[in-house]
């Protein structure tokens, strides 16, 4: 039900955003009907509860996004340097597996998405225990292997007080 309501709210907000006419009764009514219909289809498609979402994550999200934005800017500068000045900054592509200690599917998805969103590293394959990463340079790979992003996603997932790397056998969705 929570899933239905939140999906409905997001969809109706999207409708309002796109239409821009907020005092037109017919359009608002049509928006309500179609949002409710699509949200109902959504509850039939998805199995909510298996992905590990908890509301506290929303509070911790802005801090992580701020850090991620800085990381994205730095990674962009690095890749642009390697494009324009290949002599001073040569590329040295690396593939390798890195551990993904996040406990839920949502956490792993966030981690893999963050890896891919920063230019210079791409997550190719995601499994339960690790991520197969292709990096443009050895430096970018080592930077990722240092584990700061992994720790931050884990903190986003479990709260800052959670001991990082604490992997007990919680069932994967």
């Amino acid at each position: 039900m929570l899933y239905f309501l939140s999906l409905f709210a997001v969809l109706f907000g999207f409708w309002l955003l796109l239409s821009g006419l907020w005092d037109h009764g017919l359009l608002l009514g049509l928006g309500l009907i179609s949002s409710a219909f699509v949200a109902w289809i959504g509850t039939r498609l998805e199995r909510p509860g298996g992905d590990g979402f908890e509301p506290g994550m929303l509070l911790r999200l802005p801090r992580y996004l701020g850090w991620l934005l800085v990381a994205i800017v730095q990674a962009n500068i690095d890749v642009v340097r390697r494009i324009w000045d290949p002599v001073a900054h040569p590329i040295s592509p690396v593939t390798g597996r890195l551990p993904a200690s996040q406990r839920t599917r949502l956490g792993k998805t966030l981690y893999a998405n963050s890896i891919t969103l920063t230019p210079g590293t791409v997550a190719i394959e995601v499994s339960d225990a690790d991520v197969l990463v292709h990096a443009l340079s050895r430096e970018a790979f080592d930077d990722l292997a240092g584990g700061e992003m992994e720790r931050r996603v884990l903190a986003l997932e479990c709260g800052a007080g959670h001991p990082a790397g604490h992997r007990d056998g919680e069932a994967q969705g």
């Binding site: 494009i83 593939t95 891919t116 969103l117 230019p119 791409v122 443009l136």
Partner: peptide, 9 residues
């Protein structure tokens, strides 16, 4: 694979 990184920029 390296081109994917450039497209990411």
């Amino acid at each position: 694979y390296t081109r994917v990184h450039a497209a990411g920029v």
